[in-house]
Computed example of a mutant assay.
Amino acid sequence: MRVLVTGAAGFTGRAIARWLAALGHEVIAHWRTSPLPDDLIEGETWQADLAGDAPLPVRLDAIVHAAASSPSTGAAGTVPASVLIRDNAQATARLAAADVGVFVYLSSLSVHGTIADPVVTPDTAVVNPDAYGMSKLLGERLLAERAGPGLAIRLPAVVGPGAARNWPVQVLARLRRRETVRIFNGDAAFNNVVEVQDVAALVGQALTAPPDRFVAVPIASRDPVTVRQAVTCLADGAGLSATIEEEPAPRASFIIDIGPAAALGFAPRSTAAVLKDFAKGETR
Results as ranks from 00 to 15, higher is better:
residue 85 I to R: 15
residue 29 A to Q: 09
residue 67 A to D: 04
residue 94 R to Y: 02
residue 95 L to F: 04
residue 92 T to S: 11
residue 60 L to A: 10
residue 75 A to S: 13
residue 63 I to N: 05
residue 56 L to G: 00
residue 29 A to M: 03
residue 55 P to D: 08
residue 79 V to Q: 07
residue 98 A to W: 00
residue 100 V to E: 00
residue 67 A to P: 07
residue 89 A to C: 10
residue 34 S to Y: 05
residue 65 H to F: 09
residue 87 D to Y: 03
residue 32 R to F: 13
residue 94 R to K: 08
residue 37 P to E: 08
residue 83 V to S: 12
residue 99 D to C: 05
residue 41 I to H: 14
residue 92 T to M: 09
residue 42 E to F: 05
residue 68 A to I: 12
residue 96 A to D: 04
residue 48 A to S: 14
residue 97 A to F: 03
residue 80 P to Q: 08
residue 82 S to W: 03
residue 70 S to H: 12
residue 62 A to Q: 08
residue 41 I to Y: 01
residue 100 V to F: 00
residue 50 L to Q: 04
residue 36 L to D: 00
residue 66 A to R: 09
residue 61 D to V: 03
residue 79 V to C: 07
residue 38 D to F: 01
residue 49 D to A: 11
residue 48 A to C: 05
residue 50 L to E: 04
residue 74 G to I: 13
residue 69 S to G: 06
residue 69 S to K: 10
residue 57 P to W: 11
residue 84 L to H: 08
residue 31 W to H: 15
residue 41 I to S: 14
residue 81 A to F: 06
residue 34 S to H: 14
residue 33 T to G: 09
residue 55 P to R: 02
residue 61 D to L: 03
residue 45 T to A: 06
residue 66 A to D: 07
residue 46 W to V: 01
residue 42 E to W: 05
residue 93 A to G: 10
residue 71 P to D: 11
residue 53 D to E: 15
residue 75 A to P: 01
residue 71 P to C: 13
residue 41 I to C: 15
residue 35 P to M: 12
residue 30 H to I: 02
residue 87 D to V: 02
residue 101 G to F: 05
residue 77 G to K: 08
residue 96 A to M: 00
residue 68 A to R: 02
residue 87 D to L: 04
residue 78 T to N: 12
residue 39 D to T: 08
residue 48 A to T: 02
residue 94 R to W: 06
residue 78 T to I: 08
residue 50 L to H: 09
residue 33 T to W: 07
residue 35 P to H: 12
residue 57 P to K: 04
residue 91 A to Y: 03
residue 48 A to D: 01
residue 50 L to W: 03
residue 87 D to E: 15
residue 48 A to G: 06
residue 82 S to C: 07
residue 53 D to Y: 10
residue 42 E to N: 09
residue 59 R to F: 06
residue 84 L to V: 11
residue 56 L to R: 01
residue 77 G to V: 07
residue 63 I to E: 06
residue 45 T to V: 13
residue 82 S to H: 13
residue 79 V to G: 10
residue 73 T to I: 08
residue 51 A to C: 12
residue 37 P to D: 13
residue 91 A to D: 01
residue 74 G to H: 11
residue 67 A to I: 09
residue 49 D to W: 03
residue 30 H to S: 01
residue 77 G to S: 13
residue 65 H to N: 14
residue 39 D to G: 06
residue 51 A to Q: 12
residue 41 I to N: 12
residue 48 A to K: 03
residue 47 Q to Y: 01
residue 56 L to H: 02
residue 69 S to L: 14
residue 31 W to L: 13
residue 30 H to L: 01
residue 76 A to V: 11
residue 81 A to Y: 08
residue 40 L to R: 03
residue 82 S to K: 13
residue 49 D to K: 02
residue 67 A to T: 05
residue 50 L to G: 07
residue 98 A to M: 00
residue 58 V to F: 02
residue 91 A to C: 03
residue 79 V to R: 05
residue 40 L to W: 02
residue 80 P to G: 11
residue 68 A to G: 11
residue 43 G to T: 06
residue 60 L to P: 04
residue 79 V to E: 09
residue 63 I to A: 10
residue 69 S to V: 11
residue 31 W to T: 13
